[in-house]
C-alpha cells in the first residue's frame, strides 16, 4: 500500500528530513512510527500526504508513484489519505457536524449521503450527541476524536496520524489507540507516528523506528 524506495528529503539549506529510507506497508497493516523529535516522523508522513515531495527515491501509495501526480491532481490523492494531527486542525467557527462533513462536501456528495456518513462516523467515535456543538467547547480527547471522525468519514484506504495522543493522558490515549485498532480491523491501512513507546509496546503492532532521519529498526508485529 505504501512503498518507500531509497527516499531522501532534503530541505533548502541542506538539512535532510529523511535520508535514503526504504520500507513497504501492505494493505490493511497498522504500523507505528517512532523516534526522537526531529527524527523525521513528520517528514515521512508529509511525503505520503503530498504536503511535500521527496528529493530522491520513490514514494508509491496504492500503486501510484507520487512523483507523477501533478499539482492539480494532489487534492484527489489527499482524498485517498485521511490525516490526523496532534493539534486536531478543526475549524472553530463550524459545528462538529460541519467539521466532519468537510471531506464529503469537498468531494461533492449529496446532502442526504453526507448526513448519513457523518452520523455513522461520529457514532463510531462516540460523539453522535455532540454534532451541534462547536469544537472549542469539547475536551482535548473529544476534539481529537472529531479529527479522527473527519479523517475516516470518506472511508480513505490509508489513514495517517501524527502524534494523535500527544496532548492526551494515558487513559484517553488508550481509547484513541483502540479506535485506530477498530478501523484497522475493517481493513484501513494505518500509519501512526508517536513517541509514546509505552503505549504502543503492548499493542503488538509493527514499529518503524527513525533516528536522525534514517530508518534504524523495523520491528515486526508480534501478533495481529
Amino acid at each position: 500500500m505504501i512503498h518507500f524506495e531509497n527516499v531522501t528529503k532534503r530541505y533548502p539549506g541542506g538539512h535532510e528530513g529523511l535520508s535514503n529510507t526504504s520500507f513497504h506497508i501492505t494493505p490493511g497493516e497498522m504500523v507505528f512510527l517512532t523516534g526522537h523529535s526531529g527524527a523525521g516522523k513528520s517528514t515521512l508522513l508529509r511525503l505520503i500526504g503530498l504536503l511535500e515531495r521527496c528529493t530522491r527515491g520513490q514514494v508509491r501509495v496504492g500503486g501510484r508513484n507520487l512523483a507523477k501526480i501533478k499539482r492539480s491532481q494532489v487534492p484527489y490523492h489527499r482524498r485517498e489519505v485521511g490525516m490526523i494531527f496532534q493539534d486536531h486542525r478543526l475549524l472553530n467557527d463550524r459545528t462538529v457536524f460541519d467539521n466532519v462533513a468537510m471531506p464529503l462536501v469537498v468531494a461533492g456528495l449529496r446532502h442526504q449521503e453526507i448526513s448519513r456518513r457523518v452520523h455513522a462516523s461520529l457514532d463510531k467515535v462516540g460523539l453522535l450527541n455532540r454534532e451541534r456543538v462547536y469544537p472549542i467547547t469539547l475536551s482535548g480527547g473529544e476534539q481529537q476524536r472529531v479529527g479522527i471522525a473527519r479523517a475516516v468519514v470518506s472511508k480513505p484506504p490509508v489513514v495517517l496520524a501524527d502524534e494523535p495522543t500527544g496532548n492526551l493522558d494515558p487513559t484517553l490515549s488508550q481509547e484513541i489507540m483502540d479506535l485506530f485498532s477498530q478501523f484497522n480491523q475493517v481493513g484501513v491501512t494505518l500509519l501512526i507516528a508517536t513517541h509514546d513507546l509505552e503505549l504502543i509496546s503492548n499493542m503488538g503492532k509493527r514499529i518503524l523506528t527513525l533516528s536522525h532521519s534514517r530508518l534504524m529498526r523495523d520491528t515486526a508485529a508480534s501478533r495481529s
Partner: peptide, 16 residues
C-alpha cells in the same frame, strides 16, 4: 487562512 489550509489538507481542489 486556516480554513483554506484545512480544506487543502482534506483534498479540496483549487476551484472549490
Amino acid at each position: 487562512r486556516s480554513e483554506i489550509e484545512i480544506t487543502k489538507l482534506i483534498g479540496g481542489t483549487d476551484a472549490f
